[in-house]
Amino acid sequence: MSQLPASAQGASWWRTLRGFQGRNLWFAAFVAPFVLGLLVFVYIPIAWSAYLSFFDARNTINPTRFVGLQNYRYLLTDPLFQNSLLVFIAFAGFIVPLTYVCSLGLALLLNGLTWGQAFFRSAFFIPTACSYVIAAMIWRLSFFNGARFSLANQLVRGAGGDNVNWLGGTNYWYWLVLVSLRLWLQVGFYMILLIAGLNRIPTDTYEAAALDGATGWRTLRYITLPQLRASTVAVLMLLLIGAFQAFDEFYNLLGSISGYPPYARPPLVHLYLISLGGQQQDLGLGGAGTMIVTALIVFFGLTQNWLVTRADRRAG
């Protein structure tokens, strides 16, 4: 419709530009605010940071000293940065499958419930309204405090153990704290997405399967999961992107007045600490870090997508 050929004689460039009944102008008017915003606050900053990444840009945004790939080389050989990538991989490795399985479990538990469904759905969904800052406060100070008064230590002592320093970095228990917090906060949202997916599966598919004698696990394996494929791909992608962005709960669980510890630093926290959060602002390093992190998230996203698609085709 919008691409009527402008071959009619006398059709000026203006008429072409306006389009049929001015449709091109309407298109421009509708998208302009969004596209301009995207350009000014997403694309230009990314380009700028690509530019800064080749300069020594400490405490300045108009750097003069070109350093080539030095910022990149510094970051890629920095043990703390390498470690932050490992932290991301470990965190995503825990949280992505765990959240998917738990949210699917909750969705299946609620599916087809005749009594109390709205209440239980709200109970699982409402943590979404809590901020990571406040959740971190509850986890850090009441659930998993290293001191004797935390709920976790109360339980550990009840079982005959000694108080555990959950977040102190002398052991790996901080993973339990980090993963349980995010799981609690986000699982309800993905449950809603999967409930929507389950509701789209036609009931007669189940009836047909039941007639063929399929029950329980076999129904799940051969009917539910394949039919949920589209939702699954979307949920896994959103979870991965979310895990990559992790900042709030790490910062608030582990940061203190004396700074952030060297362990459990995900990429964004490390980027924050080296570029903006420290004594001086190193925007060249921050720019290089942004480039690397952006490339990685695109890479991880595409890889996961490829793996899911391939597994799906095999299951075919």
């Binding site: 606050f41 997403v42 962005q245 964004l268 570029s275 925007l283 870090g289 952006t294 998230i297």
Partner: peptide, 9 residues
């Protein structure tokens, strides 16, 4: 992910 350049901007 792009908070550094957005902050600069």
């Amino acid at each position: 992910v792009t908070f550094v350049p957005s902050f600069v901007m």
